[in-house]
């Protein structure tokens, strides 16, 4: 037997549920519209090809894709990097690898009518590479030493704090640059050849390092701005 008081309580509960559902539905619609990507920028790092053509020590490229979502940018970058050095004493080092980065930026120019970007952000990056070195040294006590050592399929991750600019130059063409503070590389120096350079990261001789990229980008609008 259902009592009237129980029916009343059930009705109240249903009303609250429906009212809540309506509020949630309204919020979700509102939120959803805010979080729809408004533009996609695809670009290419412009210094790497120049360096590749002018230097015998470097060969590499880097591409970037970033999506504008509200005041945030979802960023993905991939690249390739090969180094080739010869020391004065005849020692050589070469590496070759691929890397990727994913992360997000916060745009601080939210009211700019051209949608220019000044951002701070974070990346997680990972690199996989091979390296070979011929190490030569002459010791007054122990004599000459020469040894060739290699590491294959070394995988290293690291984190980056970034700051960057994206400036609209003409219609869909944009230029940009990103400065990176790279830290917390996960390299375990437990191999007979200690790693000198990590593609995408740089030198391992310090705990942290800096990097810079200059980009030519094309912006594809995904939603008309109001």
């Amino acid at each position: 037997m259902t009592r009237p008081s129980q029916i009343f309580r059930l009705c109240i509960s249903l009303c609250l549920l429906l009212a809540g559902g309506k509020v949630w539905a309204q919020d979700s619609v509102k939120v959803k519209s805010k979080w729809i990507p408004t533009g996609l920028r695809i670009g290419y790092e412009i210094i790497s090809p120049i360096k590749s053509n002018t230097s015998t020590h470097f060969n590499g490229w880097e591409a970037i894709a970033e999506t504008e979502i509200h005041r945030y940018l979802a960023v993905a970058e991939i690249g390739s990097w090969a180094r080739n050095w010869q020391a004065d004493n005849g020692s050589t080092y070469e590496n070759d690898g691929r890397y990727w980065r994913v992360g997000a930026d916060v745009n601080f120019l939210t009211k700019d009518k051209d949608k220019n970007v000044f951002s701070l952000g974070f990346r997680y990056a990972r690199s996989t590479f091979n390296e070979t070195s011929t190490l030569i040294t002459q010791s007054e006590i122990w004599g000459d030493f020469i040894s060739t050592r290699s590491n294959n399929n070394v995988s290293v991750g690291w984190a980056e704090l970034t700051t960057g600019l994206r400036v609209k130059v003409w219609k869909v063409f944009w230029l940009g640059c990103t400065a990176r503070f790279k830290f917390s590389n996960s390299i375990t120096q437990n191999r007979d050849l200690l790693t000198t350079d990590i593609p995408g990261y740089g030198s391992t001789n310090k705990e942290t390092t800096w990097g810079f990229g200059y980009y030519a980008l094309f912006r594809i609008p995904l939603k008309k701005s109001k």
Partner: peptide, 10 residues
């Protein structure tokens, strides 16, 4: 062993 730079010994 580690390669350091073009000007340094290993």
């Amino acid at each position: 062993a580690q390669f350091i730079s073009e000007t340094c010994d290993p």
